[in-house]
Simulated scan of single mutants.
Amino acid sequence: MPLDSATRPLNSLGFAKPEAETRVLVAMSGGVDSSVVAAQLAEEGYDVVGITLQLYDHGAALAKKGACCAGRDIHDARRVAEQVGFPHYVLDYENAFREAVIEEFADAYLAGATPVPCIRCNERVKFRDLLETARELDADCMATGHYIRRMAGAQGPELHRAADPARDQSYFLFSTTREQLEFLRFPLGGLPDKAATRALAAKYGLPVADKPDSQDICFVPEGNYASVIEKLRPGAAEPGEIVHADGRVLGVHEGVIHYTIGQRRGLGIGGLTEPLFVVRLDVDARQVIVGPKEMLATRLVHLGEVNWLGDAPIGTQAEWPVLVRVRSTRPPREAILRPVSEREAVVELLAPEEGVSPGQACVFYETEGTRVLGGGWIRAGG
Protein backbone atom coordinates (compact mmCIF):
# COMPACT_ATOMS: atom_id res chain seq x y z
CA MET A 1 0.00 0.00 0.00
CA PRO A 2 1.59 3.32 -1.06
CA LEU A 3 2.37 5.90 1.59
CA ASP A 4 0.34 9.08 1.59
CA SER A 5 1.84 12.52 2.24
CA ALA A 6 0.94 12.34 5.92
CA THR A 7 2.95 9.16 6.56
CA ARG A 8 5.68 9.35 3.91
CA PRO A 9 9.10 10.28 5.37
CA LEU A 10 10.57 13.59 4.22
CA ASN A 11 13.12 13.46 1.45
CA SER A 12 16.50 15.21 1.80
CA LEU A 13 14.96 18.54 0.73
CA GLY A 14 12.15 18.30 3.28
CA PHE A 15 9.22 17.22 1.09
CA ALA A 16 6.91 14.29 1.80
CA LYS A 17 7.01 12.86 -1.70
CA PRO A 18 9.40 10.91 -3.91
CA GLU A 19 12.47 12.68 -5.23
CA ALA A 20 11.32 12.18 -8.82
CA GLU A 21 8.15 14.16 -8.03
CA THR A 22 10.10 16.99 -6.36
CA ARG A 23 11.11 19.68 -8.83
CA VAL A 24 14.20 21.70 -7.90
CA LEU A 25 15.34 24.76 -9.78
CA VAL A 26 19.11 25.05 -9.39
CA ALA A 27 20.63 28.50 -9.87
CA MET A 28 23.76 27.70 -11.90
CA SER A 29 26.53 30.28 -12.15
CA GLY A 30 28.79 28.01 -14.19
CA GLY A 31 31.16 27.44 -11.28
CA VAL A 32 32.00 24.28 -9.41
CA ASP A 33 29.71 24.94 -6.41
CA SER A 34 26.36 25.23 -8.19
CA SER A 35 27.38 22.52 -10.66
CA VAL A 36 27.96 20.09 -7.79
CA VAL A 37 24.56 20.99 -6.29
CA ALA A 38 22.82 20.24 -9.60
CA ALA A 39 24.70 16.98 -10.15
CA GLN A 40 24.15 15.76 -6.61
CA LEU A 41 20.42 16.45 -6.66
CA ALA A 42 20.08 14.83 -10.08
CA GLU A 43 21.92 11.73 -8.83
CA GLU A 44 19.53 11.55 -5.86
CA GLY A 45 16.67 11.39 -8.35
CA TYR A 46 15.19 14.87 -8.09
CA ASP A 47 13.53 16.59 -11.05
CA VAL A 48 16.31 19.14 -11.61
CA VAL A 49 15.98 22.21 -13.82
CA GLY A 50 19.10 24.34 -14.24
CA ILE A 51 18.83 28.10 -14.76
CA THR A 52 21.71 30.44 -15.57
CA LEU A 53 21.26 34.20 -15.64
CA GLN A 54 22.90 36.33 -18.31
CA LEU A 55 23.60 39.39 -16.20
CA TYR A 56 25.83 41.56 -18.36
CA ASP A 57 27.72 41.97 -21.63
CA HIS A 58 25.62 39.49 -23.65
CA GLY A 59 28.55 37.07 -23.72
CA ALA A 60 31.23 39.66 -24.50
CA ALA A 61 33.10 38.53 -21.39
CA LEU A 62 33.57 35.04 -22.83
CA ALA A 63 37.29 34.92 -22.17
CA LYS A 64 37.31 36.86 -18.91
CA LYS A 65 38.71 35.00 -15.95
CA GLY A 66 37.63 35.31 -12.35
CA ALA A 67 34.08 36.53 -12.94
CA CYS A 68 30.67 34.88 -12.92
CA CYS A 69 27.48 34.96 -14.97
CA ALA A 70 29.36 35.80 -18.18
CA GLY A 71 29.66 33.98 -21.50
CA ARG A 72 32.26 31.40 -20.44
CA ASP A 73 30.25 30.49 -17.36
CA ILE A 74 27.01 30.07 -19.30
CA HIS A 75 28.84 27.67 -21.58
CA ASP A 76 30.19 25.72 -18.60
CA ALA A 77 26.76 25.47 -16.96
CA ARG A 78 25.28 24.16 -20.20
CA ARG A 79 28.04 21.52 -20.48
CA VAL A 80 27.32 20.28 -16.95
CA ALA A 81 23.58 20.03 -17.66
CA GLU A 82 24.16 18.13 -20.90
CA GLN A 83 26.58 15.71 -19.26
CA VAL A 84 24.44 15.00 -16.18
CA GLY A 85 21.21 14.98 -18.17
CA PHE A 86 18.79 17.65 -16.98
CA PRO A 87 17.21 20.63 -18.78
CA HIS A 88 19.07 23.94 -18.66
CA TYR A 89 17.88 27.41 -19.60
CA VAL A 90 19.57 30.79 -19.90
CA LEU A 91 17.52 33.85 -18.96
CA ASP A 92 18.49 37.36 -20.07
CA TYR A 93 18.44 39.46 -16.90
CA GLU A 94 20.88 42.09 -18.10
CA ASN A 95 18.43 45.00 -17.91
CA ALA A 96 17.11 43.94 -14.52
CA PHE A 97 20.65 43.50 -13.20
CA ARG A 98 21.74 46.89 -14.47
CA GLU A 99 18.74 48.66 -12.93
CA ALA A 100 18.73 46.78 -9.62
CA VAL A 101 22.46 46.40 -9.00
CA ILE A 102 24.88 48.25 -11.29
CA GLU A 103 23.17 51.65 -11.26
CA GLU A 104 22.96 51.69 -7.47
CA PHE A 105 26.58 50.58 -7.25
CA ALA A 106 27.64 53.59 -9.34
CA ASP A 107 25.46 56.04 -7.42
CA ALA A 108 26.68 54.72 -4.04
CA TYR A 109 30.31 55.12 -5.03
CA LEU A 110 29.65 58.64 -6.24
CA ALA A 111 28.08 59.39 -2.86
CA GLY A 112 31.25 58.28 -1.08
CA ALA A 113 29.96 54.89 0.06
CA THR A 114 31.58 51.48 -0.39
CA PRO A 115 28.76 49.30 -1.77
CA VAL A 116 28.49 45.50 -1.79
CA PRO A 117 26.72 44.68 -5.08
CA CYS A 118 26.81 40.91 -4.50
CA ILE A 119 24.32 41.33 -1.64
CA ARG A 120 22.00 43.41 -3.82
CA CYS A 121 22.25 40.81 -6.58
CA ASN A 122 21.16 38.04 -4.20
CA GLU A 123 18.43 40.24 -2.72
CA ARG A 124 16.98 41.79 -5.87
CA VAL A 125 17.76 39.37 -8.68
CA LYS A 126 18.56 35.82 -7.58
CA PHE A 127 16.31 35.57 -4.53
CA ARG A 128 13.51 37.73 -5.90
CA ASP A 129 13.19 37.57 -9.68
CA LEU A 130 14.74 34.14 -10.17
CA LEU A 131 12.83 32.73 -7.22
CA GLU A 132 9.60 33.96 -8.81
CA THR A 133 10.64 32.22 -12.04
CA ALA A 134 11.11 29.02 -10.05
CA ARG A 135 7.55 29.26 -8.78
CA GLU A 136 6.28 29.85 -12.32
CA LEU A 137 8.03 26.63 -13.36
CA ASP A 138 6.16 24.79 -10.59
CA ALA A 139 9.37 24.10 -8.68
CA ASP A 140 9.02 22.95 -5.10
CA CYS A 141 12.17 24.81 -4.11
CA MET A 142 15.27 26.57 -5.44
CA ALA A 143 18.77 25.36 -4.60
CA THR A 144 21.99 27.36 -4.83
CA GLY A 145 25.69 26.71 -4.31
CA HIS A 146 26.06 29.19 -1.47
CA TYR A 147 27.93 28.14 1.65
CA ILE A 148 25.32 28.72 4.30
CA ARG A 149 22.92 26.44 6.16
CA ARG A 150 19.14 26.37 6.36
CA MET A 151 18.06 24.58 9.54
CA ALA A 152 14.68 23.75 11.05
CA GLY A 153 13.74 25.86 14.05
CA ALA A 154 10.85 26.22 16.46
CA GLN A 155 9.42 29.14 14.45
CA GLY A 156 10.29 27.80 10.99
CA PRO A 157 13.49 27.56 8.94
CA GLU A 158 16.53 29.42 10.28
CA LEU A 159 19.64 30.73 8.59
CA HIS A 160 22.97 29.51 9.99
CA ARG A 161 26.60 30.02 9.17
CA ALA A 162 28.29 27.38 7.03
CA ALA A 163 30.08 24.48 8.70
CA ASP A 164 33.35 25.74 7.19
CA PRO A 165 34.07 29.25 8.58
CA ALA A 166 36.51 29.91 5.74
CA ARG A 167 33.75 29.47 3.14
CA ASP A 168 30.82 30.96 5.07
CA GLN A 169 28.77 33.36 2.90
CA SER A 170 26.27 34.52 5.52
CA TYR A 171 27.50 38.12 5.22
CA PHE A 172 26.26 38.22 1.63
CA LEU A 173 22.91 36.61 2.42
CA PHE A 174 21.76 38.56 5.49
CA SER A 175 18.86 40.17 3.59
CA THR A 176 17.24 36.81 2.81
CA THR A 177 13.66 37.05 4.07
CA ARG A 178 11.66 34.46 5.98
CA GLU A 179 9.43 33.89 2.96
CA GLN A 180 12.44 33.30 0.71
CA LEU A 181 14.02 30.98 3.26
CA GLU A 182 10.96 28.74 3.12
CA PHE A 183 11.67 28.15 -0.59
CA LEU A 184 15.47 28.07 -0.64
CA ARG A 185 17.87 25.17 -0.10
CA PHE A 186 21.67 25.28 0.37
CA PRO A 187 23.06 21.74 -0.02
CA LEU A 188 26.74 22.72 0.37
CA GLY A 189 26.44 24.55 3.69
CA GLY A 190 27.23 21.48 5.77
CA LEU A 191 30.37 20.41 3.90
CA PRO A 192 33.62 20.60 5.90
CA ASP A 193 35.61 22.55 3.29
CA LYS A 194 35.96 23.44 -0.40
CA ALA A 195 38.07 20.33 -0.96
CA ALA A 196 34.96 18.26 -0.25
CA THR A 197 33.08 20.15 -2.96
CA ARG A 198 35.82 19.57 -5.50
CA ALA A 199 35.94 15.90 -4.53
CA LEU A 200 32.24 15.63 -5.35
CA ALA A 201 32.82 17.40 -8.66
CA ALA A 202 35.51 14.86 -9.49
CA LYS A 203 33.23 12.01 -8.40
CA TYR A 204 30.55 13.19 -10.83
CA GLY A 205 33.15 13.79 -13.55
CA LEU A 206 32.12 17.41 -13.99
CA PRO A 207 34.06 19.46 -16.57
CA VAL A 208 34.33 22.32 -14.05
CA ALA A 209 35.88 20.22 -11.26
CA ASP A 210 39.15 22.19 -11.36
CA LYS A 211 37.70 25.56 -12.37
CA PRO A 212 39.07 28.41 -10.19
CA ASP A 213 36.70 30.27 -7.90
CA SER A 214 35.45 33.66 -9.03
CA GLN A 215 37.29 36.48 -7.27
CA ASP A 216 36.07 39.82 -8.60
CA ILE A 217 32.67 41.46 -8.68
CA CYS A 218 31.36 40.10 -11.98
CA PHE A 219 31.06 43.46 -13.78
CA VAL A 220 34.27 44.95 -12.30
CA PRO A 221 37.29 43.54 -14.17
CA GLU A 222 40.51 43.26 -12.15
CA GLY A 223 38.79 44.94 -9.19
CA ASN A 224 39.11 48.37 -10.84
CA TYR A 225 35.99 50.04 -9.47
CA ALA A 226 36.94 53.54 -10.58
CA SER A 227 37.18 52.64 -14.26
CA VAL A 228 33.70 51.10 -14.16
CA ILE A 229 32.24 54.17 -12.45
CA GLU A 230 33.84 56.47 -15.03
CA LYS A 231 32.23 54.47 -17.84
CA LEU A 232 28.84 54.48 -16.14
CA ARG A 233 29.02 58.11 -15.03
CA PRO A 234 31.26 60.06 -17.44
CA GLY A 235 32.93 63.01 -15.72
CA ALA A 236 32.53 61.46 -12.28
CA ALA A 237 36.25 61.54 -11.51
CA GLU A 238 36.57 65.25 -10.76
CA PRO A 239 39.83 66.35 -9.08
CA GLY A 240 39.92 67.79 -5.60
CA GLU A 241 42.01 68.19 -2.47
CA ILE A 242 43.46 65.69 -0.02
CA VAL A 243 42.93 67.36 3.35
CA HIS A 244 44.23 66.41 6.77
CA ALA A 245 41.57 66.20 9.49
CA ASP A 246 43.20 69.25 11.09
CA GLY A 247 42.50 71.31 7.95
CA ARG A 248 45.85 71.21 6.20
CA VAL A 249 45.78 70.66 2.43
CA LEU A 250 48.27 67.87 1.73
CA GLY A 251 47.80 67.30 -1.98
CA VAL A 252 45.38 66.75 -4.81
CA HIS A 253 43.50 63.74 -6.11
CA GLU A 254 41.94 62.74 -9.43
CA GLY A 255 38.51 61.84 -8.08
CA VAL A 256 36.91 60.77 -4.80
CA ILE A 257 35.82 57.53 -6.49
CA HIS A 258 39.43 56.32 -6.34
CA TYR A 259 39.37 56.17 -2.51
CA THR A 260 37.69 54.15 0.23
CA ILE A 261 37.44 54.54 3.99
CA GLY A 262 40.46 53.00 5.70
CA GLN A 263 42.70 53.19 2.65
CA ARG A 264 46.38 53.87 3.34
CA ARG A 265 48.29 53.02 0.19
CA GLY A 266 48.19 55.00 -3.01
CA LEU A 267 47.29 58.33 -1.42
CA GLY A 268 50.09 60.19 -3.20
CA ILE A 269 51.09 62.24 -0.16
CA GLY A 270 54.52 60.88 0.70
CA GLY A 271 57.11 62.58 2.87
CA LEU A 272 54.99 62.65 6.03
CA THR A 273 56.26 61.49 9.40
CA GLU A 274 53.04 59.68 10.37
CA PRO A 275 51.03 57.08 8.42
CA LEU A 276 47.72 58.53 7.28
CA PHE A 277 44.47 56.81 6.33
CA VAL A 278 41.32 57.89 4.54
CA VAL A 279 38.92 58.67 7.38
CA ARG A 280 36.13 60.41 5.47
CA LEU A 281 35.02 61.31 1.94
CA ASP A 282 33.33 64.68 1.37
CA VAL A 283 31.74 64.23 -2.03
CA ASP A 284 30.15 67.69 -2.20
CA ALA A 285 33.46 69.43 -1.46
CA ARG A 286 35.39 66.86 -3.54
CA GLN A 287 37.70 66.30 -0.58
CA VAL A 288 39.45 63.17 0.65
CA ILE A 289 39.97 63.63 4.39
CA VAL A 290 42.89 61.76 5.92
CA GLY A 291 44.06 61.30 9.48
CA PRO A 292 45.84 58.97 11.93
CA LYS A 293 44.67 55.41 12.36
CA GLU A 294 42.88 56.08 15.65
CA MET A 295 40.39 58.27 13.77
CA LEU A 296 39.09 55.16 12.04
CA ALA A 297 37.89 53.65 15.30
CA THR A 298 34.09 53.38 15.37
CA ARG A 299 31.88 52.31 18.25
CA LEU A 300 28.37 53.28 17.08
CA VAL A 301 27.03 52.07 13.73
CA HIS A 302 23.76 53.46 12.35
CA LEU A 303 21.82 51.05 10.13
CA GLY A 304 18.98 51.23 7.64
CA GLU A 305 17.02 48.58 5.68
CA VAL A 306 17.31 46.16 8.60
CA ASN A 307 16.22 42.58 7.91
CA TRP A 308 15.47 40.73 11.15
CA LEU A 309 15.36 36.92 11.27
CA GLY A 310 15.02 36.39 15.01
CA ASP A 311 12.05 34.48 16.44
CA ALA A 312 10.60 37.42 18.35
CA PRO A 313 9.99 40.76 16.56
CA ILE A 314 12.99 43.05 16.80
CA GLY A 315 10.98 45.69 18.68
CA THR A 316 10.12 43.38 21.59
CA GLN A 317 13.46 44.19 23.22
CA ALA A 318 15.19 47.53 23.66
CA GLU A 319 18.56 45.81 23.40
CA TRP A 320 19.75 42.58 21.82
CA PRO A 321 23.17 41.14 22.70
CA VAL A 322 24.61 39.96 19.39
CA LEU A 323 27.77 39.31 17.46
CA VAL A 324 28.17 41.50 14.38
CA ARG A 325 30.34 41.52 11.30
CA VAL A 326 30.93 44.93 9.67
CA ARG A 327 33.01 43.62 6.75
CA SER A 328 32.87 40.27 4.97
CA THR A 329 36.53 39.60 5.78
CA ARG A 330 36.26 40.24 9.53
CA PRO A 331 35.25 37.85 12.30
CA PRO A 332 32.08 38.56 14.30
CA ARG A 333 32.52 40.91 17.26
CA GLU A 334 30.48 41.44 20.42
CA ALA A 335 27.91 44.22 20.21
CA ILE A 336 24.57 45.53 21.44
CA LEU A 337 21.79 45.96 18.87
CA ARG A 338 19.28 48.72 19.66
CA PRO A 339 16.22 48.88 17.36
CA VAL A 340 15.02 52.32 16.35
CA SER A 341 12.17 50.94 14.22
CA GLU A 342 11.49 47.72 12.33
CA ARG A 343 13.90 48.86 9.61
CA GLU A 344 16.39 51.01 11.52
CA ALA A 345 18.81 50.25 14.32
CA VAL A 346 21.99 51.38 16.07
CA VAL A 347 24.73 48.90 16.88
CA GLU A 348 27.15 49.61 19.72
CA LEU A 349 30.42 47.72 19.29
CA LEU A 350 31.86 46.66 22.63
CA ALA A 351 35.32 47.14 21.15
CA PRO A 352 35.77 49.81 18.43
CA GLU A 353 36.24 48.65 14.84
CA GLU A 354 38.33 50.43 12.24
CA GLY A 355 37.22 51.36 8.75
CA VAL A 356 33.45 51.06 9.22
CA SER A 357 32.13 52.45 5.95
CA PRO A 358 28.71 53.58 4.71
CA GLY A 359 27.46 51.21 2.04
CA GLN A 360 28.80 48.09 3.73
CA ALA A 361 26.59 45.64 5.58
CA CYS A 362 26.46 44.93 9.31
CA VAL A 363 25.31 41.35 9.89
CA PHE A 364 23.92 40.04 13.21
CA TYR A 365 24.58 36.62 14.76
CA GLU A 366 23.56 34.88 17.95
CA THR A 367 26.13 35.23 20.73
CA GLU A 368 26.15 31.44 21.11
CA GLY A 369 25.83 29.12 18.15
CA THR A 370 25.78 29.76 14.42
CA ARG A 371 22.40 31.37 13.74
CA VAL A 372 22.18 34.43 11.52
CA LEU A 373 19.76 36.99 12.98
CA GLY A 374 19.74 39.33 9.98
CA GLY A 375 21.53 42.58 9.37
CA GLY A 376 21.30 46.06 7.91
CA TRP A 377 23.09 48.54 5.67
CA ILE A 378 25.57 50.90 7.30
CA ARG A 379 24.46 54.51 6.94
CA ALA A 380 27.02 56.14 9.24
CA GLY A 381 29.49 55.37 11.99
CA GLY A 382 30.53 57.35 15.01
Rank of each mutant, 00 (worst) to 15 (best):
M1E: 04
P2V: 12
A6W: 13
T7H: 14
R8P: 11
P9H: 03
P9Q: 11
N11D: 10
L13Y: 03
L13E: 09
G14S: 05
F15H: 11
A16Y: 02
L25W: 04
A27S: 07
A27M: 03
D33F: 01
V36K: 14
V37W: 04
A38I: 05
A39V: 11
D47N: 08
Q54V: 00
D57H: 05
H58F: 12
G66N: 14
G71H: 08
I74C: 00
H75M: 11
V80D: 06
E82H: 05
E82K: 11
V84S: 02
V90C: 14
N95F: 09
A96Y: 01
R98Q: 09
E103H: 08
F105I: 02
F105Y: 08
A111N: 13
T114H: 06
V116Q: 06
P117Y: 07
P117L: 02
E123T: 00
R124D: 00
K126F: 09
F127N: 11
D129S: 04
C141Q: 05
Y147M: 09
M151A: 15
A152P: 06
Q155L: 08
Q155E: 14
L159A: 06
R167M: 15
R178A: 15
Q180S: 07
L184D: 03
L184Q: 03
G190Q: 07
A202R: 15
A202W: 10
L206C: 04
V208G: 06
A209S: 03
A209Q: 15
P212W: 06
D213T: 04
D216T: 00
I217T: 14
P221L: 00
E222I: 00
A226C: 00
A237Q: 08
A245H: 13
G247I: 09
R248L: 13
E254D: 15
G255E: 13
H258Y: 07
G262L: 08
Q263Y: 08
L267V: 13
I269L: 07
G270D: 12
T273M: 13
L276G: 10
V278C: 06
R280C: 03
D282H: 14
R286Y: 02
Q287E: 14
V290N: 10
P292F: 11
P292T: 07
A297W: 01
R299F: 03
R299M: 04
V301N: 09
G304T: 09
E305N: 14
L309T: 10
L309K: 11
D311H: 05
D311P: 13
D311T: 12
P313K: 10
E319Q: 11
L323G: 12
V324H: 05
S328G: 12
T329S: 13
P331V: 12
P332C: 13
E334H: 03
A335G: 05
E342V: 03
V347F: 06
L349I: 01
L350R: 03
V356D: 01
Q360R: 10
A361S: 13
A361G: 01
F364K: 07
E368W: 01
V372M: 08
W377F: 01
I378F: 02
A380I: 02
